[in-house]
Amino acid sequence: MALGHTLSAPDGPPGTAYDLDGRFVTDIEGFYCAIGEAINGLGGYFGWNLDALKDCIRGGFGAQTPFRLVWHESAVARVYLVADDSRRRLGSAITLEYLVDMLATYRIEIDLR
């Protein structure tokens, strides 16, 4: 068996709350890592770009909507996930507000802490 991400996992029941550790969400890749681990445990996968994230949200990757995402230390992402992020070379930066709004459209309740 190869090491790496678990690509699919049984979905938790609708209404489940997941705790996202936001201490290291200093870029969008950090967010993908954090949401993967919140839903599927250490090294867990829940998308690696926006399209993959949306695929995971549809089910079959550890969580079934509607669910609640408790985003601890969200202030870190508020500082680093900003529209004028000059470190992004490919495409525009994804902001915290964009992620919260996008997730809400998929019936994911976000609790920023």
Results as ranks from 00 to 15, higher is better:
E109D: 10
L103C: 02
V25Q: 01
L81F: 02
F61C: 11
E109L: 07
R107F: 14
L96T: 11
R58F: 07
Q64W: 09
T65I: 06
G36M: 09
V76Q: 03
R23I: 06
R78G: 05
G47N: 05
F31G: 05
H72D: 13
G4H: 03
V76D: 02
C56R: 01
D51G: 14
T105Y: 05
D21L: 11
I39W: 08
T16D: 12
P66E: 07
V79D: 14
L3M: 15
L103M: 06
L103A: 03
G30T: 09
D84T: 05
L90H: 12
P14F: 09
E73M: 04
P14D: 02
G36H: 08
G15S: 03
G43A: 07
D27R: 02
R89C: 10
W71H: 05
L3W: 15
R89Q: 13
P10G: 12
Q64F: 11
G62W: 05
C33K: 14
L81W: 00
T16W: 12
E73H: 12
P14M: 11
N40P: 11
A34V: 04
P14W: 10
R68M: 10
A104D: 04
Y32H: 07
L20R: 04
A63W: 00
G4E: 05
T65G: 04
Y80D: 05
G47Y: 01
G60C: 05
V79W: 09
V76F: 00
